[in-house]
Design a protein around this nucleic acid. Structure first.
Lengths: 270, 270
DNA sequence: CGTCGCTTTGATCATGATCAAGGGATGTGG
DNA sequence: CCACATCCCTTGATCATGATCAAAGCGACG
């Protein structure tokens, strides 16, 4: 299997800039994030950076590599709660509990920067708006998680798989790691089945059917979505949950914002 | 059906105090929250306070009543993403998207206070620690959501139902709305089935089996958990995800905290 | 050359969906 | 006060989605 290339020099600033865009950083906030990213650490493939049941007080910025947040059940089954891509943050949730509720593991070699929780609360006093932006990133993460509930709760296996592949396409494209219709997934089908709560054999069969129907092509870990329209229709995929407002716009005081065209505020009561 | 009693005078301060505890508010922060709660509004049963696809820029503090966050699918099926109880916050996520991703609806008469998003960002400058605490509450909400993924993804119908009822017991007890083994659920089985991604008929059957096995009793919307131990074992219910650290402790600088007994930091790399 | 990790496929089983019908409650209007 | 409707619970019969079990193929790699 080809994994992502290992840490290259300069990756820190590439992703510091990417964070900058996602979080709408101002010129004085940017160097702070760049500082955090500068002291990054490599993570080898299949390594846990957070372990369920152990204490964690660090927030990790994923600069490179793909990670999963997961739980191992009593019977040995695994449920993957989220897929974490470069530009995402990890480990924040466990900071607010005695010990971590999930483990977080790399699927590939990767690179992460560390912000201790204390550092975040420190920022809260010195750079409150920046700290707020980081907290907002947690909210975006939660939105993906909520959507995952809907995928797993109310969709058929075929729909789940289609949705999963489309979500990955959209997220990878947003960070420049996919082209218009295709991307490399450096992981195997068991990730898909554990993310979607399905059995391996069945995921395989349904993937096969999707390719036979001409919607996909998968070969050697490269996924080509041949008909995005049809697949989106099949999966009932709405990308809105992957597109939060630009933070600069959300955080500006409301008198600076024009209301969205044609959409007033919701009438509240009565 | 008996719904919760309507807004009583004084409910604002009762729950302002409850928030105070949950968020470890300091004496100067408390009046701010109390102010927000003072201007609360009643919500009638079965009313949407956030509507999917509509713009929302308000954070709602649930002072009274039970709410659900849900999505209606193409085929008319509903997936409930979260149950919101007094003391929870609602609508924050939709503030960060052009329009709401989910609707939020009351199951009972209720009472909510409103904090405009601008107000939260205003707090960020004037009372950064308080704003941080509110953001932390979003993280707790996300933890429940993540657990929901695991429930729906990898548990049998019987286990899901058991888990759901235990989660409710635990959360209601935490806010004083349940006694040791029982509580009233002012809603019907279709809420359970839409929360867990099951069919109504099957939920009914499995509920029946659980009562026949002597684990539960349900009559007229009152749930009595007769054997918490056995039910927890059956559901693989771990309440940890409902017990975040007291924020006062999390937010204190680390040199004030003693490490958790017997649990060092996680060894990071290698 | 043998092993390991991953994919593929077949056969069978069962969990849970769907369809259908009936049975209290409670409420409402005539 | 009764007729009727509505909401929710209950139960049976049947169906199908997806799990489980089993086995084989196939690179890659040591």
């Amino acid at each position: 299997m080809k994994s992502l290339p290992s840490a290259q020099p300069g990756a820190e600033t590439v992703f510091a800039r990417r964070f900058a865009t996602q979080l709408s950083l101002t010129p004085d906030e940017l160097p702070i994030i760049r500082d955090i990213c500068a002291s990054s650490r490599p993570v080898r493939r299949r390594q846990d950076i957070v372990i369920e049941g152990k204490r964690n007080r660090n927030i990790f910025f994923v600069l490179e590599g793909i990670f999963v947040r997961y739980r191992i059940m009593r019977d040995g089954q695994r449920q993957i709660v989220s897929i974490l891509l470069p530009g995402d943050m990890a480990g924040a949730r466990s900071c607010f509990f005695e010990t971590a509720l999930y483990s977080i593991r790399s699927l590939t070699n990767g690179l992460v920067a560390t912000l201790p929780l204390d550092g975040l609360f420190g920022l809260l006093d010195r750079q409150p708006q920046l700290a707020g932006k980081i907290f907002c990133a947690f909210v975006h993460d939660a939105a993906i998680c909520a959507e995952h509930v809907v995928v797993v709760g109310r969709r058929s296996a075929r729909e789940r798989i289609a949705h999963f592949l489309l979500e990955l396409l959209t997220r990878l494209r947003a960070i420049g790691l996919a082209d218009d219709h295709s991307y490399r997934i450096p992981f195997s089908q068991d990730i898909i089945c554990d993310a979607l709560g399905l059995s391996l054999a069945y995921v395989n069969r349904e993937l096969r059917r999707l390719t036979q129907d001409g919607l996909l092509e998968i070969s050697d870990h490269k996924v080509v979505i041949k008909d995005i329209e049809a697949l989106s229709e099949l999966a009932d995929f709405e990308r809105r949950y992957l597109q939060p407002m630009p933070l600069g716009e959300v955080m500006a005081p409301s008198f600076l914002r024009r209301p969205a065209p044609g959409q007033g505020e919701v009438a509240f009561i009565r």
